[in-house]
C-alpha cells in the first residue's frame, strides 16, 4: 500500500475535499465528502438508492457544481469553473451513464464518433476516425452494429455501445454509473468483464458505482487475460481495488475488500455477501 500512495508513481487523478452538494430545499445529497483517487486504482462505490452515488460521479465530471468544498481533477481545481473551461479536462474522462444516454437520433457509429468529433482537446485525422470507431466497437464486440440506431439494440448492447463511446478517446479515468443496473446476470457479467478488460488492457483508473457486491468482487479478484480473452483469478498481487460505501451523502466506509468484509457496521454489512450469512 505504501507504493500506492506514492504521488509520483501514482498521481492523484480525482480528489474530493469536503465536497457538499445540495438541491434546495432538500438536505445535502453529498455531505462533506473527501477521498482521493490515485492512478491505477479501481474504486467500487456501493450504497443504497439515493445515497448520492450518481451525484458523486456527476460532480466529479463537473456536471453538478458543489455548494461547498473543492474538486480536483488531474490536480487541477475544477470547482465552479465555467463550462467552456471544463470541456478540455472532461476530454480526459470517460463516463458511462446509468441509462447509457446514447443519442437516439444518431447511429451507433455516430454515437461512438461523437467525442472524437466534439472534444476540442482531441485531434484525430478524419481518415482515422472510422478505424478508431471500429476499434472501439470491436473492443465491446459490437462491430456489426455500426449502422444501427440505439432503439434497435437490446439494453445490454446499448450499455456496451456506451462503454465503446466512453473509451474511444482512451481516457485515463473512467466513471461507470450503475453499469449492471436492470440487466440479467449473464449480461451484467459481460459488462463487468468489459470493465475489467478495459482496466487491464489500457491501464485505466476507474470509479464504478453499483449496488451489487458481486460486481466489486469480480473487479477486485479477476484480471483480463489477453491471450485467452477471458478473466482469470488475479492471484496474490491483487488488483488495487478500493471499496467505498455511501450512506445519505456521506462516506461511511473506505478500504480494501478484506477490510470491507471484516467491517461490523450494520449498514456496510448489508452490501457484503458473507458465506456464513448466506448459509444462515
Amino acid at each position: 500500500m505504501a507504493e500506492l500512495s506514492n504521488p509520483v508513481s501514482h498521481p492523484s487523478l480525482l480528489r474530493f475535499e469536503e465536497v457538499s452538494v445540495r438541491f434546495d430545499p432538500d438536505p445535502p445529497v453529498l455531505d462533506k465528502l473527501s477521498f482521493n483517487v490515485r492512478a491505477g486504482e479501481t474504486r467500487i462505490i456501493l450504497g443504497a438508492a439515493g445515497s448520492g452515488k450518481t451525484v458523486l460521479l456527476k460532480t466529479a465530471m463537473g456536471l453538478i457544481q458543489p455548494v461547498g468544498g473543492r474538486v480536483f481533477l488531474f490536480d487541477e481545481d475544477v470547482t465552479n469553473k465555467p463550462e467552456t473551461e471544463l470541456f478540455n479536462i472532461r476530454s480526459k474522462l470517460g463516463m458511462l451513464f446509468q441509462e447509457s444516454a446514447l443519442f437516439d437520433s444518431m447511429t451507433v457509429a455516430q454515437n461512438v464518433a461523437y467525442p472524437l468529433l466534439n472534444q476540442k482537446a482531441i485531434v484525430i485525422p478524419r481518415d482515422q476516425m472510422e478505424s478508431a470507431v471500429r476499434k472501439s466497437l470491436s473492443f465491446v464486440e459490437l462491430e456489426h452494429t455500426m449502422d444501427k440506431y440505439p432503439s434497435e439494440l437490446s439494453g445490454g448492447m446499448r450499455r456496451r455501445v456506451a462503454i465503446a463511446r466512453a473509451v474511444v478517446t482512451n481516457p485515463p479515468l473512467l466513471l461507470y454509473d450503475s453499469p449492471t443496473a436492470g440487466l440479467d446476470p449473464i449480461t451484467a457479467h459481460t459488462i463487468m468483464a468489459l470493465i475489467v478488460k478495459e482496466r487491464d488492457a489500457n491501464s485505466t483508473t476507474a470509479l464504478v458505482v453499483t449496488h451489487r457486491y458481486q460486481d466489486g468482487n469480480l473487479v477486485a479478484n479477476f484480471r483480463y487475460n489477453p491471450n485467452s480473452g477471458r478473466l482469470d483469478p488475479a492471484g496474490p498481487e491483487g488488483t488495487n481495488t478500493i471499496f467505498m460505501v455511501m450512506k445519505e451523502g456521506r462516506l461511511v466506509f473506505e478500504g480494501n475488500q478484506t477490510e470491507l468484509e471484516a467491517c461490523n457496521d450494520a449498514y456496510v454489512s448489508k452490501f457484503v455477501k458473507r458465506p456464513e450469512l448466506e448459509a444462515a
Binding site: K58, M61, L63, E83, F97, E99, A101, D104, Q119, R165
Partner: peptide, 18 residues
C-alpha cells in the same frame, strides 16, 4: 425533455458539447 430525462443532455456536456 426526453433528452434531459434520459441523461443525453448530460452526456452531451460530458462529451465536449455545449
Amino acid at each position: 425533455g426526453s433528452m434531459k430525462v434520459t441523461e443525453q443532455i448530460d452526456a452531451m456536456r460530458a462529451l465536449g458539447t455545449d
